[in-house]
Write a protein that binds this DNA or RNA. Structure first.
Length: 274
DNA sequence: ACACCATGTTGAG
DNA sequence: TCAACCTGGTGTT
């Protein structure tokens, strides 16, 4: 489930639940992180931060826990005492309140390491602007896009260009703007980029709020169009993502799919003409 | 039981 | 361009 909106939501949820406690229980049943967990155990979570799909848990002078969920990572928050020590060896990191009234288990991340402030800065430096961050400068992304002959579909997924956009937002934002995914960056106009960026800001904020990706405009919902209700099997309502060979909600043409840089791309050939 | 797939990224060739 | 890594849900023997 992890695109940028998920990570920002996690940053907020970790902070809300754990920063009020002056001492946390920090454990890891996995050898990979056990030493770092032991180092942090009994200390306070001071702050949390997200940049794109990267999550940072700040433990003051001890450094930051850098988490990247990859494709499979997940965090499970519980408002009850853990049934026992995190014996499932799939738990990479468990934070728990002092009396164990509540806890959070992290499973399956590609990254979970303790890093220094300087190392964290280096990560920010290699990431593009994040539509969910106040310090984001969309012009930096525009300059990179317009200087590149790579397709806009690939550029939107490049975290050095824009941070936080994944396969769903990529497909959906291109549909919403009627842009062919194979359009080279050099052919994307300033006005088009401004519209895409603003849309990403709105869509991703909504994603944080609802905890799902929902991109269908109110006037295009099945109710509004007088069609039978539909249910996408991945949470929210979308136009093209994972709808290969199904009819486009707007024009009825078949949604297409193709491989692009080892990811599945989806688009409507009629609504997003070359 | 097993195969396959997924909202991601890195490093080797 | 490809394999590797991490987990879990769904569908197939």
């Amino acid at each position: 489930m992890p695109e940028g909106h998920t990570i920002h939501r996690l940053a907020h949820e970790y902070a809300t639940r754990f920063t009020p406690h002056p001492r946390l229980s920090v454990t890891s049943p996995q050898a990979k992180f056990a030493d770092s967990a032991a180092l942090l155990d009994g200390h306070r979570l001071a702050t949390t931060e997200a940049h794109g799909k990267h999550l940072f848990l700040g433990f003051g002078p001890l450094g930051w826990v850098h988490i990247h969920l990859g494709l499979f990572g997940k965090v499970n928050f519980e408002d009850s005492p853990p049934a026992g020590p995190a014996k499932t060896d799939t738990v990479r990191l468990r934070l728990a309140t002092p009396a164990a009234e509540a806890y959070a288990d992290l499973r399956g991340p590609t990254t979970c390491t303790l890093i220094t402030d300087a190392e964290k800065q280096a990560i920010h430096a290699r990431l593009g602007p994040d539509p969910l961050r106040d310090d984001a400068d969309p012009d930096r992304a525009r300059a990179r896009i317009q200087a590149s002959r790579t397709t806009i579909a690939a550029l939107l997924m490049d975290q050095k260009v824009v941070a936080g956009v994944g396969n769903v937002y990529r497909a959906e934002v291109l549909f919403r703007h009627g842009i062919d995914p194979y359009t080279p960056g050099t052919a994307v106009t300033g006005a088009q980029w401004a519209a895409i960026w603003q849309d990403l800001v709105d869509l991703m904020r909504e994603g944080v709020r609802l905890n799902r990706i929902d991109t269908v405009r109110p006037e295009h919902t099945p109710e509004a169009m007088g069609r039978p209700p539909r249910k996408d099997d991945h949470g929210g309502e979308v136009y093209v993502y994972r709808r290969a060979a199904m009819p486009c909600h707007l024009c009825g043409d078949e949604i297409r799919t193709a491989d692009l840089a080892a990811r599945n791309l989806f688009w409507c050939p009629t609504c997003q003409p070359a």
